[in-house]
Amino acid sequence: MAKNQPSSTRDKAKAMREAQQKKEKRVRNLIIAIVSVIVVAVIATLIIVITTVDKDRTKSGFVGAQSGAQSGEILPIANGGPIVISDLGVGKANPDVPNLDLFFSYTCHACASLEEAVGDSLTKDALDGQYNLVLHPVDTATMAFQGPATNAALIVAEQDPENFVAFHRALMLFLNEEVNVKKDGTIVQNIASSKEKVAEMAKEVGVPQDIIDQFGDEATEYIAASQEIWRNFPAEGRDGLATPEMVFMGTVIPWTGNTPSEMYQNITTAMQQIADAQTGNSSQS
């Protein structure tokens, strides 16, 4: 019996070592599995973050461009401030994108031409988050239509922002048809006819009647305040006050081109060049 004890002890020791090795292997495998899961999770998170950043960069064509604050403070409408269109909605400026300020009049025939050609495209880009489209109604080419149109636009922008874009475009396209196509001032030269037409267009785009009932004949005080903002607005390259005037990041953009697509391309190219110059990037076209 005594001779068998060492062999039995060795067997037990071997079994214990093997059991310990198996335990250590299981612990090691468990640690590796946990670390692998953590690494995969970290990588997945990084991919999501990078993808989100890239999507945001793609969304705005002016990455790194300073916000529109440098183009002048955006005052509330009550103080003669503009009507803002952005991806946040009408009346809400996105502080993370630059401003495209547009000074125009609801009786300016050239403004009507600009709207007819590229208005839809510029508005779409603003709604897509490329920039804030900042509309400044001012006084040029004064006609009776200006008062009712401006008055109604301001009311709709504040009380029915969902319908503002369609209403604004309807006003401008009507002006384009009257003064540039028909060359007829019968309605736009008459206050009563203008007010009636403005109300009709508002109803057609879905503005509620209780808001239409608030429309007035004039916006004299607002236009005077907006006019003062325009005169003092920082605009490099300005040659006198004339509408339409587009200012992007403090620089006036000319609107040139023989077709709507060419005009839109020229405008967006000019904006990209201004953004590149201010951020130190170089554009490749």
Results as ranks from 00 to 15, higher is better:
residue 266 N to G: 12
residue 18 E to K: 14
residue 75 L to S: 12
residue 271 M to R: 04
residue 110 A to T: 04
residue 151 N to R: 09
residue 43 I to S: 07
residue 2 A to N: 10
residue 191 I to T: 15
residue 48 I to C: 07
residue 135 L to N: 00
residue 17 R to Y: 10
residue 42 V to Y: 12
residue 237 G to Y: 13
residue 8 S to I: 14
residue 92 K to M: 08
residue 10 R to M: 12
residue 21 Q to H: 12
residue 183 K to W: 05
residue 38 I to E: 09
residue 263 M to K: 11
residue 204 E to K: 14
residue 81 G to Y: 09
residue 11 D to L: 14
residue 203 K to M: 11
residue 67 S to I: 06
residue 133 L to M: 02
residue 250 G to A: 11
residue 41 A to Y: 05
residue 87 D to G: 14
residue 25 K to M: 13
residue 32 I to D: 10
residue 10 R to S: 10
residue 173 L to T: 15
residue 32 I to E: 11
residue 258 N to P: 03
residue 268 T to A: 06
residue 100 L to E: 01
residue 87 D to I: 01
residue 137 P to C: 05
residue 194 S to W: 04
residue 137 P to R: 03
residue 237 G to I: 12
residue 193 S to V: 04
residue 75 L to A: 14
residue 26 R to K: 15
residue 74 I to S: 05
residue 99 N to H: 08
residue 28 R to Y: 10
residue 261 S to L: 09
residue 52 T to W: 09
residue 151 N to V: 06
residue 218 E to L: 06
residue 171 L to F: 06
residue 7 S to M: 12
residue 46 L to G: 13
residue 221 E to R: 08
residue 88 L to E: 04
residue 105 S to F: 01
residue 16 M to I: 14
residue 59 K to R: 15
residue 101 D to C: 02
residue 136 H to T: 03
residue 213 D to A: 15
residue 144 A to N: 11
residue 67 S to E: 05
residue 251 T to D: 07
residue 63 V to L: 10
residue 12 K to I: 10
residue 140 T to L: 03
residue 24 E to V: 08
residue 250 G to L: 06
residue 224 A to E: 13
residue 179 V to S: 07
residue 169 R to M: 02
residue 36 S to Y: 07
residue 157 A to M: 03
residue 178 E to C: 04
residue 268 T to D: 03
residue 78 A to L: 05
residue 233 F to V: 11
residue 266 N to W: 03
residue 187 I to Y: 04
residue 236 E to C: 08
residue 17 R to W: 08
residue 267 I to H: 01
residue 267 I to L: 12
residue 222 Y to W: 09
residue 87 D to M: 02
residue 202 A to K: 02
residue 130 Q to S: 08
residue 111 C to E: 00
residue 111 C to T: 03
residue 60 S to C: 13
residue 16 M to N: 13
residue 112 A to R: 01
residue 87 D to T: 04
residue 225 A to G: 07
residue 283 S to H: 10
residue 122 L to P: 00
residue 33 A to H: 05
residue 117 A to Q: 02
residue 16 M to T: 11
residue 1 M to F: 08
residue 241 L to P: 03
residue 176 N to S: 09
residue 225 A to P: 04
residue 36 S to C: 15
residue 284 Q to Y: 13
residue 203 K to W: 03
residue 100 L to N: 01
residue 89 G to M: 07
residue 175 L to R: 00
residue 82 P to M: 08
residue 138 V to K: 01
residue 133 L to K: 01
